[in-house]
């Protein structure tokens, strides 16, 4: 009997918790749900205290302050980002989100970061330029901008085809472990991500001087959602003018890369 009571207690606790977890955050006009990949530092990631943070998320926080919205940070599976956006479970994708090549697929905010796709190799690999990658195994994140560039006719498809193998992976941590272990020879990714990863892992890795392309980041909204996009644009402009934007860029080491017009 005693055991039964204990189980009942546990049941109640768990179901109440579940109700809290699912029931809260009722969707209204004032909630701004940002979808992001939580494994994408410095734009969006989990900090020391287990809070989601990053350049993009702090920026979103500031935008919400200006517009009087409540920010809801929703980590998403990157491969499902379009389903999440189109089904309305998130309001926008804000996560080092490359505009180039996706111009017509989303309502885009003004570009705020100028980013390049680069290639990271082991320092002692002997690979000096893009042409040295012929026949090599190159890692790239599934559904990422780097993958698009390497498979797009108008991008670097020719280069991509020269690789021995284009190895897709789910997250950067795995990719770096594989690079270290030698199962991939190089990884293609955004420069910001590359810098962050390398700063955390020491000088064992280098970024090739030759870039794959230059591209810009923006906030992607569902097609037709121009109202929300305009609100965000206005707020971004204000943040640029009052210096908050540059302050955040500096904090995350992205000052060199910003392109937001005042």
């Amino acid at each position: 009997m005693k055991l039964r009571k204990k189980i009942l207690c546990a049941l109640l606790t768990i179901s109440t918790t579940a109700a809290l977890l699912t029931g809260c955050g009722k969707k209204d006009n004032k909630t701004f749900t940002v979808g992001f990949d939580a494994e994408y530092p410095p734009y969006g990631y989990m900090d020391e205290n287990g809070e989601y943070t990053g350049f993009d998320l702090e920026l979103a926080e500031e935008v919400c302050k200006i517009n009087g919205w409540t920010l809801k940070k929703q980590p998403i599976d990157w491969a499902n980002k379009d389903n999440e956006l189109n089904s309305g479970s998130i309001d926008c994708i804000w996560n080092g989100f490359t505009i180039n090549g996706r111009e017509d697929k989303y309502e885009w905010s003004v570009p705020y970061v100028d980013n390049s796709q680069v290639v990271v190799v082991k320092a002692d690999s002997g690979i000096k330029g893009l042409s040295d990658l012929a026949g090599k195994t190159v890692g790239v994140q599934a559904a990422s901008a780097a993958l698009d560039v390497l498979t797009d006719e108008e991008g670097q498809k020719e280069l991509g085809d020269s690789f021995g193998k284009l190895q897709e992976f789910a997250d950067y941590n795995t990719a770096f472990v594989e690079l270290q272990a030698g199962s991939v020879d190089a990884i293609a990714m955004d420069i910001g991500v590359a810098q962050y990863q390398i700063s955390g892992r020491g000088d064992e890795f280098i970024i090739l001087d030759e870039h794959l392309n230059a591209e810009q980041y923006g906030v992607g909204f569902k097609l037709g959602n121009t109202k929300m996009r305009d609100d965000v644009n206005k707020a971004l402009k204000e943040l640029k003018q009052n210096g908050k934007f540059d302050e955040l860029a500096e904090k995350y080491g992205l000052s060199e890369m910003t392109c937001l017009e005042p």
Partner: peptide
Amino acid sequence: AFSISYIEMFSITKQIASTQTTL
């Protein structure tokens, strides 16, 4: 559960691993 972005133990683990660049 992470395939529909529900954050349970394994996805948190992956997130920490990627931020901390450790296994």
